[in-house]
Nucleic acid binder design. Structure first.
Lengths: 246, 246
DNA sequence: CAAAACAACTTGTATGTACAAGTTATAATT
DNA sequence: AATTATAACTTGTACATACAAGTTGTTTTG
């Protein structure tokens, strides 16, 4: 993300609060402001950037909206663990409870292949021109397979990231911390389907039993880069939960 | 919503930007600022409330976050059609496309009954003490039933609203325009299940075919008032779509 | 008459200041 | 020693001002 803004007149404008916002975001992403710690006070940041609290507060307000920090009156701005949860990624028993542990196993890839026609979204022209990186994962709860997940992204937008390099097994964390790329939103399509033979085998359930199929496209802060997902969830034993605010 | 804020010291504090925010929100909800129209300019509002642009802009910023308005530099603040869509309420073919028309038929109620144990969320103590208002609806696309929807809310928090009074067939619109109550968020639980005999009959599909079951709790701006939903969706022919931003 | 310049409006960014409200550690009091 | 007051910090609200940037209608200019 850049602090330079193209204005309609064709000029390039530097917004001071963008500069501050980008600086702090980068330090959070790279761990220089660790999770749980407090940012320097608004007045300290004023000093660092020779500006006023109004401008600093505008920058912090944006980071608040982006989900990087929370503010506590009288105390300061605290760095949050992760961005606001996106998508239907919360499996019941996972959020809050620590007695259930989610393990992720990469079962295929990452490797360069052609796009899979199963993807439920229309690819952009740029994406069609490129081939893609594919990998498959299975999520386990209590040592039982619950979600089978296929993922793709355009090979020309991002280098192949080896699964060994996944930070704490998370592709999104790797994107944020190593590439400073954030997920900005998602579109999803949900269908209830009978389990195919292959899905049934992977999730250790009976063929034909009802499965929740989710097709996702994640939009990122890197223009042109989308992440596509194709998920098969055993919701009979582990319902999917999510919540919305505001 | 009130412009009075209980501060930790026990006192009640009046925030000027809350006063302005509440005033404008109410005028939007009651149609005095019609959808598509522009609010008075920031400077005009300053005059009405004897304050400065900083304070007015803070109020408008909140209304922006709440999804009531959008701002256009050089033009003004425009009143939006509805709040940001919440929940998994977008059926494919509905959003954008006008060739599919969604018809809603109230098939039961509204009537006062006891709570149904099928509700997937824990009721509050207040809710348990009260009985509830129940109504059932079926949503049609192209004259085919696609969603069977059961709804409940605590009878002591809101009077029974007759289905004839649903504004444009929408319960939420009625809540907003007649009662100034807004949906603030939702929690959902998703399961893929085989269609029961009753669901199959209502959705005109085969018994046992895969159905998406959604349990929802909508939180509202009226403290203590939740709306509970229990939805059965034929996603085979009409997948559910939704999207997230930021 | 058509294009360019201008004026008058809108929202966006930024500076500077002041005080209120909440937190925390320390000092004074009981 | 436990409680209370205080001081020094934090973020929250609000005022007043100035100019930049975008939109729109009017006036001037070629």
């Amino acid at each position: 993300m850049s602090n330079l803004v193209a204005v309609k007149s064709g000029k390039i404008k530097n917004r001071k609060y963008h500069t501050i916002q980008d600086y702090i975001r980068k330090r959070i992403q790279t761990g220089k402001y660790p999770v749980g710690s407090y940012l320097p006070s608004e007045n300290e940041i004023c000093g660092q950037f020779s500006t006023t609290r109004t401008t600093v507060r505008k920058a912090l307000d944006e980071l608040l909206k982006e989900g990087f920090i929370e503010k506590e009156q009288g105390k300061g701005s605290k760095v949050l663990e992760r961005r606001k949860s996106l998508g239907l990624l919360t499996v019941k028993g996972f959020s809050g409870a620590t007695d259930h542990e989610v393990k992720t196993v990469v079962t295929d890839g990452p490797k360069v292949t052609d796009w899979d026609p199963i993807i439920a979204f229309a690819l952009t022209e740029e994406e069609k021109k490129s081939n893609c990186v594919y990998f498959q994962r299975v999520r386990y709860i209590n040592d039982r397979p619950v979600v089978l997940e296929n993922n793709w992204y355009a090979n020309n937008e991002l280098p192949l990231i080896d699964s060994d390099a996944f930070i704490a097994g998370s592709f999104f964390k790797t994107l944020s911390q190593k590439h400073l790329i954030e997920v900005m939103g998602a579109e999803q399509e949900l269908k209830s389907i009978p389990a195919s033979k292959e899905v049934a085998k992977n999730l250790e359930i009976q063929e034909g039993s009802p499965i929740l199929h989710i097709s996702v496209r994640f939009r990122t802060s890197k223009p042109g880069l989308n992440l596509y997902g194709d998920l098969y969830c055993n919701t009979t034993d582990y319902p999917i939960r999510n919540s919305y605010f505001l």
